[in-house]
Design a protein around this nucleic acid. Structure first.
Lengths: 161, 161
DNA sequence: GTCGCTGCAAAGTCTTTGCAGAGAG
DNA sequence: CTCTCTGCAAAGACTTTGCAGCGAC
């Protein structure tokens, strides 16, 4: 399935996002369902990286009557990722995590102690990546960068011990 | 298990690497076995990123009489990674891949069409990462960066079609 | 000899798939 | 009505673990 969703998500209110979402589903011949809305909603509300399982649990809490299945989560996330409505990062141990697509691309700092994820953007690096790709005659379509280490908090805690 | 292997691997001949390897095993209270040597050897010979399964197959071919088990591959790779004798990258679909630790850290360009991996280093980016970490009071211990896209070859092939 | 290492098979994860029924358009 | 989407359960891929025997030291 090939979809083509030109969209930015964050920084808009939920009702607008939802409207956007419905339009985009239609445009791609996909149906609007309560399950899909809830997935969008939880991603919007939590505003952070969620694993499929976490997302599943959140929806179970938020809408137990929906009785959503984990398979639907996986299927929908795959679909939304193809549609570029969500993006994912894959961490070595923890598996894939998803978040709403952002109008701005960003990279991640991941605390190896507590798992916290700090987002950042750096134009200098972005620019350099393009140059490097060009040098290697490589046609860049995307990239991901993770910095691993200890967040401020965990550094403090370590000192105390 | 905590190991402490200060080492560089590439750019040295195999016998030296092997000697190095034996010393380091001993230093960490680990035993030298034929299985471990073969894993080292294949990683050295292939000089690229291997998945546990590929590594397994290569060893089966190279030394069928060893009758190595896949579990040993996994156990050994985990161990060698802790020991910093090998490093891994995790690609979304393909899972983890391993290579011998290099004296120089490097990043990866990954062709989304053919899976080819091109390695590169860029000091400007390395430097910038340090600065960014500092800005966020984040104690960087490592990082990984992947650029996704089409390698030169695949671009040519696409044009032909 | 001791104790770590190994192969095997079984058990775990995490993710995907087949299917029949439910539901959106 | 039609055809997609869903939940369920089963199947898959990949990785880890328990165990008894083997082998390095």
């Amino acid at each position: 399935m090939k979809t083509n969703f030109p969209i930015t998500c964050k920084g808009i209110d939920y009702p607008s996002l939802l409207e956007n979402f419905k339009v985009l589903l239609k445009r791609n011949g996909l149906k609007y369902t309560l399950q899909r809305e809830h997935i969008l909603k939880i991603l919007y509300k939590s505003n952070k990286h969620l694993s499929p399982e976490l997302l599943y649990n959140e929806i179970k809490l938020d809408a137990p009557e929906l009785n959503i299945g984990i398979a639907t989560i996986y299927r929908t996330l795959t679909l939304l990722e193809e549609a570029e409505l969500v993006t994912s990062i894959s961490l070595d141990k923890q598996g894939k995590k998803y978040e709403l697509a952002d109008k701005e691309h960003h990279d991640h700092m991941i605390c190896t102690n507590c798992g916290k994820i700090i987002e950042f953007i750096d134009n200098e690096i972005e620019e350099r990546q393009k140059q490097i790709s060009k040098q290697h005659q490589f046609k860049m379509t995307g990239h991901s960068m993770q910095i691993y280490g200890l967040c401020n908090e965990c550094q403090q805690n370590n000192k105390e011990k």
